[in-house]
């Protein structure tokens, strides 16, 4: 299908983009890489009155290390972060998960922040941001605020963003010495994950984040469980996610994936822990 009609604004500065959001509120949408939003527009699941293109705002295309965090601006495409020479050293989990985000042909255009803004429950970037206790940096003409990733995503494609706000950047804390594991199951590499699991093994124990099952990525923190204690914890988590049947997989299959690949990524993370 074709999108419904909208005005198109090509913002040259952040202030221009924020002014449109301040004036139009919920009738305006930011477009960056467009890899989620354009599909929504084509299917008319989204019908904004005005699109604000932010990709010609140079300041947003920035990956920077600031106060122990990696800050990724709203203009940074997934392919750019994946090609960043320090990614594996600074953010190993993101280096593991990003190749599973869409395809080469969509990572080349799609942005990191756009994926967080879209908040698809099976998406890898929100999963990593929540697993790593990252933050979302919001900006409006009135104010700036920083929201923890776990609080930002409130449900399926729902976020705490106000109508006049845009994501200016997301930031991931750098944590040396942790081990990481990531795995997902999808019908085709790059398709929406039926279930995706990310594990972090630190000195304090293990942290497991799961996408694709509940309406947003969910996380559990456990001590260094083993054997049947780990099985029990994974089983309880799998049921707490309240999996549903759909055209792609049954709820039971999803619970099984949480138990199986949840355990695999935890073991992988432990092996990599310093």
């Amino acid at each position: 299908m074709k999108p419904a009609a909208f005005d198109y604004v090509r913002a040259d500065t952040l202030d221009e983009a924020l002014a449109v959001l301040a004036a139009e509120g919920g009738d305006a949408r930011i477009i960056a890489g467009g890899q989620s939003l354009m599909a929504m527009l084509n299917m008319r699941l989204a019908r904004p009155k005005v699109l604000v293109d932010i990709m010609r705002i140079g300041d947003l295309d920035r990956i920077a290390e600031e106060r122990g965090r990696i800050v990724v601006g709203a203009g940074v495409r997934q392919a750019k972060l994946l090609a960043w020479s320090e990614l594996a050293a600074k953010l190993p989990l993101v280096a593991l998960a990003l190749p599973w985000t869409g395809h080469e042909q969509t990572r080349s255009r799609g942005t990191i922040c756009g994926s967080v803004a879209h908040a698809d429950p099976s998406a890898e970037t929100p999963l990593c941001l929540i697993a790593l206790e990252g933050e979302v940096h919001l900006r409006s003409a009135r104010r700036r605020r920083v929201v923890a990733a776990g609080d930002f995503i409130t449900g399926m494609m729902n976020t705490a963003r106000q109508d006049d706000e845009m994501i200016e950047a997301v930031s991931f804390p750098i944590r040396a010495g942790n081990g990481y594991g990531f795995r997902e199951v999808a019908r085709r590499h790059g398709d929406f994950a039926i279930t995706a699991c990310a594990a972090i093994a630190s000195a304090n124990g293990i942290r497991l984040a799961v996408a694709g099952v509940a309406d947003k990525p969910e996380v559990r923190n456990w001590p260094d469980l083993d054997g049947s204690a780990l099985d029990d914890a994974l089983n309880a988590f799998a049921y707490e996610l309240d999996a549903r049947d759909d055209i792609h997989a049954t709820a039971r299959y999803r619970r099984d994936l949480v138990r199986q690949i949840g355990r695999e990524v935890i073991m992988e993370a432990r092996r990599c822990r310093a």
């Binding site: 198109y8 477009i31 467009g34 354009m38 599909a39 084509n42 293109d53 392919a79 042909q105 255009r109």
Partner: peptide, 15 residues
């Protein structure tokens, strides 16, 4: 588009 693989259905002409 500018050397990037691009889905032309997920891209607007004006972009």
């Amino acid at each position: 588009v500018d050397g990037m693989l691009t889905r032309s259905c997920l891209t607007l002409a004006v972009q």
